[in-house]
Amino acid sequence: MPYSHAPRPTTSDPVTGPLDIRLIVTDMDGTLLDDDKKVPRDLWETLARLRERGVLFTPASGRQYATLAEEFSEVADGMVFIAENGTYVVRDGEELSSDPLEPAVVARVTRIVRDLTAGGAEVGAVVCGKRSAYVERDDEAFLAEVGRYYVRHRVVEDVTAVDDDILKVALFDFGSAAHTTAPALAPLAGTHQVVVSGEHWVDVMNRTANKGAALRALQRELGITPAQTMVFGDYLNDLEMLDAADWSFAMANAHPDVVGRARHLAPSNNDNGVLRTVTRLLHL
């Protein structure tokens, strides 16, 4: 959703030649994708040009790895995917890093969700494993929302009994996640991350897990510096990722806290802000 905020980061960048950018990392929803969840028409051509330049393009999302891999299936060879808000990083099907939750934490969050539902809240949990996502609700409206971000998901009787490494628990609130679901998870905030990742979503992860931690680990592995990294984001789960890049961009539609954290401002997700900025600054 659009926000108003002041002051804003600069939109005019004093660049006279192509930047030495080796890594471009972008959030998906509200950032690379427009409000209809569609990729820009010229994305594939731009990715081909970046590959020719030796620039690695990396999606970083709360979406599961299977969803991201399907979206980029035609160009996925060699790409790194930062999935599940940084808890799972994969390249060519091989895990580079992960940060799974303890089963006791998954059980605790599940109990909170069940209590909320019993009290009349319209909330559902998505228990996000490496192999699949797992849900207990099977109503059509909830599964439609789950399917947007988790192409690989299963309805099970008890999400705490699945045999998988659980990376995070994502809660979908049909109302306001910030006003209803997040406060119910406050007891976990002292030991774990409780991140509002969208208007209707809250994610529970290990305190050590976020997109920024995953990005810094990737930079170390590839020998890429923050000065050689360009990052785009729009919401609160992107904050740490912005800190890992000298060229950090908040979208024009971003949450005010994201705008305040980023060094620069990009056009909105509906105005193809990511690719317009990349094309301009890298002289593609």
Rank of each mutant, 00 (worst) to 15 (best):
M79C: 07
V80I: 08
F81I: 09
I82H: 10
I82N: 06
A83Y: 07
E84V: 14
Y88Q: 01
R91V: 06
G93L: 06
E94N: 15
E94S: 15
L96A: 07
S98H: 09
S98K: 08
D99F: 11
D99Q: 14
P100F: 13
L101A: 11
L101D: 10
A104I: 11
A104R: 15
A104E: 15
V105L: 14
R108L: 09
D115F: 02
L116T: 03
T117I: 13
A118V: 01
G120F: 05
G120R: 05
A121I: 05
A125S: 10
V127N: 08
V127F: 07
V127L: 06
R131Q: 10
S132M: 10
S132G: 04
Y134P: 04
V135L: 06
E136L: 05
E136W: 06
D138T: 01
D139W: 03
A144C: 04
E145A: 12
R148P: 02
Y149T: 02
Y149V: 03
V151M: 00
R152N: 09
H153M: 03
R154T: 05
V155A: 01
T160R: 05
T160W: 03
D164Y: 00
D165Y: 04
I166D: 03
L167E: 08
L167T: 05
V169W: 07
V169R: 10
A170T: 14
A170I: 06
D173R: 06
G175V: 01
A177C: 06
A177E: 05
A178K: 00
P183H: 03
P183M: 02
L185N: 05
L188N: 11
A189I: 00
G190M: 01
G190Q: 00
T191D: 15
T191F: 12
H192M: 07
Q193C: 14
V194R: 05
V195N: 11
S197N: 08
H200F: 13
H200K: 14
V204R: 02
R207F: 11
T208M: 11
A209W: 12
N210Y: 09
A214W: 09
